[in-house]
Simulated assay, not measured.
Amino acid sequence: METSTDRDAYRAAEQKLESLASGTTPDRLTEIADEVLAVANLLVREPRLRRALADSARDGQERSELLRGLLAGKVGDEAVDLTSTLAAGRWSAPGRLLDSAERLGVAVLLAAADRSDELGEVEDELFRFNHVADGSPQLAAVLSDSTVPVEQRGRLVDDLLDGKARQVTVRLVKLALVGFGGRGFSASLTRLVELAAAKRDRQVAYVTAASVLSDDEERRLGDRLEQMYGRRVSVRVSVDPTVIGGLSVRVGSDLYDGTVLRRLTEARSALGK
């Protein structure tokens, strides 16, 4: 479980990223993201290093210099600065450092999309790809199958998204293949959608409807949810004819199920008593 200490350590690196992103091109940010994610992969492969960098018995400066020494000449100065800032923080467990390194790489990718004014499109493409995969059990099984080499699954992602999605989206989908933050493929994509929305200071509302909502219906629903939650909301609609009518809306841990299917199910349960 993430602690306040973990959040403070991550925030220090996030602040450094905010300063970096304001004066860096999207293409360079994408390169930095790949380097940060490469460092995260190093932490996956080297548990002893992960433990050493999260060892609270060591001074933060010592841990930072340890990582700097290992990365010197292997990745760019920006990636070294970002990841060594993480290493200098205090962590409740080595796994929290690893999760934060992965999240930092994602944050750099999202910063690249933001600099290109494509962040909303990336959020939408991630959601739509996840929705397509969820609607195809065979595709979802292949993309989630850890026995299939990740390079092979990555080529499938390239084929599916070629000319249909931005490069940041493709990179994030490929990250989901290996399980972002230890999650499964679909859960990884869901989390990435939420991080993209949060970067735009938005909450995600997952809506299930029996048929496609009109633009006006979607707008009015979004306005109502924004009034309820006091912040902007990204409405993400999935169509499922089995709900028959009405809407199911999930925002974070809140679920509002007003579908006809739910009411029928409740009626059957009441009649069976």
Score class of each variant (00 low, 15 high):
Q227F: 07
T208F: 05
V204E: 12
R202E: 15
S214W: 04
V235Q: 06
Y256L: 10
S253P: 00
R236Q: 14
R224M: 09
V237E: 10
V251D: 02
V251W: 04
Y206A: 13
V233A: 02
V249W: 00
R250G: 00
L225V: 12
S234A: 15
A205I: 07
G246R: 05
Y256Q: 01
E218A: 15
S234W: 07
L213G: 05
R232G: 11
R231G: 14
L255D: 00
R250E: 02
D223Y: 08
V204P: 07
S211D: 03
L213M: 10
D216G: 12
R224C: 03
V204N: 13
D215F: 15
S238R: 13
R250I: 01
E218M: 12
Q227K: 14
R232S: 15
D240Y: 02
V249I: 13
R224E: 12
D254C: 00
Q203W: 03
V243P: 00
L255W: 01
V212Y: 10
G252S: 07
Y206F: 15
T259A: 09
L247V: 09
D215H: 15
T259R: 00
D215T: 13
L221C: 03
D216V: 09
S238E: 09
L221V: 06
V212T: 12
P241I: 05
G222P: 04
S234N: 10
G258V: 03
A210D: 06
A210I: 03
L255E: 00
R220F: 06
R202P: 06
V251K: 09
G230R: 09
Q203E: 02
Q203K: 10
S211K: 10
G230N: 11
V207H: 09
S238W: 03
V239H: 08
T259I: 01
V233W: 00
L255F: 00
G230Q: 12
L255C: 03
Q203L: 08
D223I: 14
V251C: 02
D215P: 10
G245W: 05
V243W: 10
P241M: 13
L221E: 04
D240I: 02
R202D: 08
V237N: 02
R202Q: 11
A209V: 14
V251R: 01
T208V: 15
Q227E: 14
G245N: 05
V239T: 11
V235W: 06
L221T: 05
G246S: 11
S234F: 12
L225K: 05
Q203D: 04
R219Y: 13
S214Q: 02
T259V: 02
R202A: 01
R250P: 01
V212L: 12
M228Q: 14
R224H: 09
Y229C: 01
Y229N: 01
Q227M: 12
Y206T: 11
R220L: 03
L213Y: 03
S214L: 01
V207C: 13
S238Y: 05
A205M: 07
T242M: 04
R220W: 07
R224L: 09
G246I: 11
R219K: 08
L247R: 06
E226L: 04
S234V: 13
R236A: 12
V243T: 04
L213W: 14
R231I: 09
G230M: 12
E218W: 09
S214Y: 03
L247T: 07
A209L: 09
R220E: 08
R231K: 13
T208G: 11
S253L: 00
G222S: 05
Y256G: 02
S214G: 07
S253C: 04
G246M: 14
D215W: 06
V204A: 13
V237Y: 08
E218P: 05
S238G: 10
